[in-house]
Design a protein around this nucleic acid. Sequence first.
DNA 1: AATTACCCTATCGGAGTAGTAGGGTAATGA
DNA 2: TCATTACCCTACTACTCCGATAGGGTAATT
Lengths: 135, 135
Amino acid sequence: MLSRKTKYALKALTYIARQQEKKPVQTAIISESENISHKYLEAILLTLRNLGYLGSKKGKGGGYYLLKPASEIQMVDLLRKIEGPIALVPCVSLNYYEKCDDCPDEGACSVHLLMIEVRDSTLKVLENKSLADII
Amino acid sequence: MLSRKTKYALKALTYIARQQEKKPVQTAIISESENISHKYLEAILLTLRNLGYLGSKKGKGGGYYLLKPASEIQMVDLLRKIEGPIALVPCVSLNYYEKCDDCPDEGACSVHLLMIEVRDSTLKVLENKSLADII
DNA sequence: AATTACCCTATCGGAGTAGTAGGGTAATGA
DNA sequence: TCATTACCCTACTACTCCGATAGGGTAATT
């Protein structure tokens, strides 16, 4: 299941990306439009900024804005950074790999092999999606 | 992420399905072979029995056994019943649908549309997999 | 009748999530 | 300059779920 945090991050990014002008968007506006708790959204936007997706401008007329064109923001990267692994079990994760403490042999594990297939099909979708695609 | 419960359930089922003879398999044997807490496994096997996947036999020489051929046990069904929804957000779940409290219009939600694609690609994998396929 | 193995209830610590509280700091415009 | 606006940061809390444990009860074999 996708966390609310990730969902909010996606919604906020699409909201910002949808703006015609490059003007910064205020957090209050996003939180009202998308029905997200204002303070909670602040924390998320801050994360997105620290990840290099957003820039911010303080003072009157300030807010958040995209640092890259929406077409260059890939869904896979975003989800991995906010949500964590794409894979459903750590032992098939490409970016967050962890060995199972119980499995002596991954190659012989039926769950392992099944989850690789699931992971790959999910990746296929996410690797071909940018922020621009979902606006 | 897949819960340990589901992973254990899959492992237990494959273990039972691998037996040549139709003889019942004891919980103790499964828990030792697959490194699963014995008591916890008991609860899982009980669930699988109540779901109609397994039968059980008490007394000496008892244990659990498959009620259906492995080829008729579909991964989608199993995962849905043990783990819950396949979808990553409730609003795109086919079997566990729930409306988002924040979204006024699902059709306009970018997250919604993206997650439908992810769900469908996952389903495509799981719908073509039976227990027999992953042994 | 004793053994074996299934069956059930209750409980618990730990981890993570969503959200709140409250304040601080920097940069605009007037 | 100075007040306003809006970003920035820390800490805390209520809540839920998960994996696991404890301890016993019951039914069916040999």
